[in-house]
């Protein structure tokens, strides 16, 4: 059993005729935080969207190559993308709780649709997920309130709880704090570190300092290519590539 949760091999992705990912080879460590950084349009978001088969939902989008999740290629024929997405959860840039659902239902919806019917079990899942996301104490008396009544940071943690409720193994986060104030962002960052004890976390960020703070490994993407990938301390102390150096020191463009 390898310690890599995800192994990406020769991954290419297109939007129509425009190639946005070029021959990406990357192995992602289990139970660690891997940060993906790079300038806008470098393909970092597309990359993580290839890891839960969300990329192909965009009209005209195409993928080639292999993505092994626990050794199984998620792009093999006969693999149901819906099943993959239950194993590989995703958190988005803008907190997006379901506006018409209560806090409770936001978290319970996933397990409910997956067939959990027993109210007690659901209560337990909701509570455990909210606790894991560090939100339980703040909302335990307001579970019936709408999810959008919460503050931005709380909404994002609600989204994390919602993702955790379907018991994923990998969490993909697409700039999860870019819409939040610094205090809320700090809470999410602390949460990410905690989650890495049990989950494989991949976070896309264009905040270089955030990548430095939260990640164990960091990858730098530029123009659809993986330029550099390594332990966070090494990359931020002595990047191997001149491009990475220029990007993280702000000498770009």
């Amino acid at each position: 059993m390898s310690t890599y949760k995800i192994e990406v091999e020769k991954l290419n992705a297109w939007f129509g005729s425009k190639q946005v990912l070029k021959n990406i080879d990357m192995k992602v460590k289990d139970r660690a935080v891997t940060a993906i950084m790079g300038p806008s349009g470098c393909g970092k978001t597309t990359f993580i969207r290839c890891l839960n088969r969300m990329h192909e939902l965009t009209p005209g989008a195409r993928v080639s190559g292999r993505v092994l999740l626990d050794g199984i290629n998620i792009y093999d024929d006969g693999i149901d993308p819906v099943q993959i997405r239950r194993k590989v959860g995703m958190i988005f840039q803008k907190p997006n709780p379901f506006p018409m659902l209560s806090i409770y239902d936001n978290v319970a919806l996933g397990p409910k649709l997956n067939g959990v019917k027993d109210r007690k079990t659901l209560d337990l899942i909701v509570r455990r997920s909210l606790e894991l996301a560090g939100l339980w104490d703040e909302v335990k008396n307001d579970l019936d309130k709408s999810g959008v009544s919460l503050s931005g940071g709380q909404q994002q943690r609600l989204c994390i709880a919602r993702a955790l409720a379907v018991e994923p193994e990998v969490l993909l986060m697409d700039e999860p704090t870019s819409a939040l104030d610094p205090m809320s962002a700090a809470k999410i960052e602390a949460l990410i570190r905690k989650l890495a004890e049990n989950y494989t976390v991949i976070i896309v960020t264009h905040n270089i300092q955030q990548a430095a703070r939260v990640s164990d490994y960091v990858a730098f993407f530029y123009l659809g290519e993986l330029i550099e990938y390594g332990p966070t301390k090494d990359v931020f102390e002595k990047p191997r590539s001149e491009l990475t150096e220029r990007y993280i020191t702000g000498k770009f463009g």
């Binding site: 839960n52 969300m54 939902l57 819906v82 099943q83 993959i84 997405r85 239950r86 194993k87 959860g89 995703m90 988005f92 803008k94 997006n96 709780p97 379901f98 506006p99 018409m100 919806l109 996933g110 649709l113 997956n114 989204c159 919602r162 993702a163 379907v166």
Partner: peptide, 29 residues
């Protein structure tokens, strides 16, 4: 209905028809 809501549902591992009925239609009812 914002695309982000649809994506949230799909990312939870919801089949498309469930996403449409339970999430999109419900948001727009």
């Amino acid at each position: 209905v914002p695309a982000t809501i649809r994506e949230a549902a799909i990312a939870l591992g919801m089949p498309r028809w469930k996403t449409v009925v339970y999430i999109v239609l419900r948001s727009a009812k």
